[in-house]
Amino acid sequence: MTAAPVIRVRGLVTRFGPQTVHDGLDLDVERGEVLGVVGGSGTGKSVLLKEILGLIDPAAGRIELLGHDTADLDRAERTALQARTGVLFQNGALFSSMTVAENVMLPLKEHTGLSPALIAEVARVKIAMAGLPPDAGTKHPAQLSGGMIKRAGLARALALDPDILFLDEPTAGLDPIGAAAFDTLIQGLQRSLGLTVFMVTHDLDSLTSICDRIAVLVDKKIRVGTLAQHLADPHPWIHDYFHGPRGRAALDAKERNQARRHEEEDAKRLAKG
């Protein structure tokens, strides 16, 4: 295990015509952490994600993924690196002409020399790990609900056991119960698979419950810190974000959850003692 950050962004500049979205942005994502990325509309959260993934070229700056500068890679190296990253797009981006199982099997077929039987079995395990019922594998994306599409997308993103998992608004469009279940799923998978998670989100509950650190896009730069650090940040946007009515509600919910967990633990201890 290296101590070097899994994702290192230095001096990133992004421009669309005359408009500058990022101006000298620096970001480090450490191995094994869950980083939540927030920011107002139009601050370039999804653009940052696409730049790290190599879908958009930045105007200036360096992006290192797993210690490799993405600009220096040749085709083969880039493909190898892409096999170590998994992406869950906002609307799943499942291939609509394929079943869920075929979607999950596609990267395995393309990037590994496993036998078809083993690929099918691995795909079945991934689908089950993503919390989908066994019959979901034979269904087409059009037959699935929004929450199931996200889970299927997650199963495909995890097909190659990536080191880094990118999530673009994973809980958007889910009902609160589904969103909470999805958060729990991501947290469980992150722990068992040892993933580094880069999560663009608007969901304050996700931020407070599963993110280790939070990166806030403000003033064309990024401010990374723990929840406690951001709560103390006087920057007006960050203050409004975390101290607004929704922010407060999410924090209260977190406190309540923690309090309940402590009570349960105390009760257990008492019962044992």
């Binding site: 079945r124 395990v125 790990m129 019959d135 594998g137 040892g194």
Partner: peptide
Amino acid sequence: EHSALFDAVRDAGKAPPHP
């Protein structure tokens, strides 16, 4: 460091195969 993954896969593998 492997036990969480091993358990998660074991639980997932218990799901019956596709009909």
